[in-house]
Nucleic acid binder design. Structure first.
Lengths: 110, 110
DNA sequence: TCCCTATATATAGGCTTCCGATGTATATGT
DNA sequence: ACATATACATCGGAAGCCTATATATAGGGA
């Protein structure tokens, strides 16, 4: 039986989902999480960068330095096949968790 | 704007929801969380008891020792009015959070 | 009789995950 | 000139949960 632990780990899923659409750099990821969640999910940069390094180390994303025309540097992250494989089980686990919490406490999406 | 932090804190909500139906002792709470969530939410007793003490300290629940006919003792927890008031905002926050995660990553309840 | 499981509470120690505060540096608008 | 936005980075710490362990009683099966 799949058991969904009670945990916050939704940040990783959010990042994977964003990078599944297109490669992004850190600062842009944070902005999109806030924007695309309607301002609900706030995510500080102090949380984001260590998270990205960890996901890079695991091989879920691959970061590469870019040099902008201005000469400025930034790190662009791309989803790897291994990272893409992580998504379905995470989606399933969160779905299960949500349904369970709904059954117990009546949490609704509406 | 209400911002839902990314956190696991669902345990407190689950406990409040169970105690809203009827007073229960710790061991029974853990059993019901597992049972009523279809085995999805697992919750170790080592997490549960400190949580109950904290909620008692905050005045959300009130624990009282019972002596069973067998002479055995156990602690029965009851929801307080203050505890009941915590539920609607928590439900709202979790609802917002799930909608946001659904928008971002496609987490579904179905 | 002895052991195993279930019931019931409790604590120590530690891990993961996230946040606040702070720092550095460049680009852009006013 | 100055404020704001962009962009990355780290330190320290808090929160929330788990593993392991301890204690003690009750009931069932070998």
């Amino acid at each position: 039986m799949i058991t969904a632990r009670i945990k916050r780990g939704s940040a990783e899923l959010a990042i994977l989902a964003l990078l599944a659409e297109e490669p992004l750099h850190g600062y842009e990821i944070a902005r999109r999480i806030e924007k695309q969640s309607g301002g609900v999910l706030r995510f500080t940069l102090a949380s984001l960068y260590p998270l990205l390094y960890r996901m890079d180390k695991r091989g879920w994303v691959r970061g590469a330095w870019q040099t902008l025309p201005s000469g400025r540097q930034r790190r662009c992250y791309e989803l790897t096949p291994k990272g893409r494989k992580q998504m379905p089980p995470m989606l399933k686990e969160w779905g299960l968790f949500f349904r369970a919490l709904h059954k117990l406490a009546g949490v609704s999406r509406a």
